[in-house]
Nucleic acid binder design. Structure first.
Ligand code: MN
Ligand code: MN
Ligand code: ZN
Ligand code: ZN
Lengths: 155, 155
DNA sequence: GACGTTGTTGCAACACGTTGCAGCAAGACC
DNA sequence: GGTCTTGCTGCAACGTGTTGCAACAACGTC
């Protein structure tokens, strides 16, 4: 039961660097381009662990380069998501939340009262996925799942 | 497996009218006020079955009275939700979706590819709620749950 | 019916994200 | 290094929803 924000230990930093280094080639393979704007966002992402909102990422890019344009960042995030490099879900208010370099697919749990958030564990996730798979043949996108309610402490 | 938009048969229209008629008193009991703006939104809601986005409701109010102010509508929706008269969730893009007069609590399922939506059945809902209740004592707000993925037909 | 309290409204500004489009530039090819 | 193709960017406008605040009005009380 890892609280979000204290990110789980993940692969080593050198593995991470390798993963980020390949982004350029992954884009090129698809006939897409490696631009300064994309380079900047990837640089920001590579220093981000865990979860960030879209607006946070725009902000962090703007810190590096104040001429950053929001729509370019959001469009680049869409591209990176197609490549599987980031995934997004939505907070309780519907705002975007990005998972960077998702080690394992997972959903999120938010307490409406105290605002705390947790990752949905593999077992919990499997149970939800299995329920909808069995009954309807529906393939759940677990990383887009956000469940809101009240945590044990707040009840 | 009711597709959303072909609303399930619900209580009779006269029951509905009675429920809507009590809104005024339910507000007053709490020291809240029954204003023309609230009257207008309740009139719109009383003719709405199933699911609507917040923006839809603003639009429908504006059809009745072009001087309608969006923030007033959204604030009134918040109040009505506190009274349990409407509930909201979020579509795949994070936009608000209101359930009007929810007969039974239910979540939603959206196919990312074809855009179709279904209600999560009582059994499916119970399974999800039970999983998180058992493991963590987390009380899921089922009516706020939206699960996105791919439906059987689109797989 | 006038009065006071306080919940509500209208408004303007803001936050987050998306979209259409014209001009720009990445990178493939020579 | 020059040329071409086409993916990308910047920009402006828009869509959806929230917030702060001053003026207003619902409604309980006399
Ligand atoms: Mn919500
Ligand atoms: Mn989404
Ligand atoms: Zn809590
Ligand atoms: Zn589908």
């Amino acid at each position: 039961m890892q609280p979000v924000g204290s990110p789980a230990p993940s692969e080593s930093r050198s593995d991470d660097l390798a993963a980020w280094g390949s982004v350029r080639d992954r884009l090129r393979e698809r006939g897409l381009r490696w631009t300064p704007q994309r380079r900047a966002l990837v640089a920001v992402l590579s220093q981000t662990r865990g979860h960030v909102t879209g607006a946070d990422l725009v902000e962090r890019c703007r810190e590096q380069d104040p001429s950053t344009i929001p729509s370019t960042v959001y469009r680049t995030l869409d591209v990176l998501e197609e490549l599987g490099i980031v995934r997004h879900g939505h907070g309780p208010d519907g705002r975007e939340e990005y998972h960077v370099l998702p080690d394992a697919e997972h959903g999120h749990l938010h307490c409406r009262d105290c605002g705390a958030a947790w990752e949905i564990t593999a077992e919990e996730g499997a149970s939800i996925v299995a329920t909808l798979e069995a009954a309807r043949g529906f393939a759940v996108d677990l990383s887009h799942v956000t469940i809101v309610g009240r945590c044990r402490a707040c009840r």
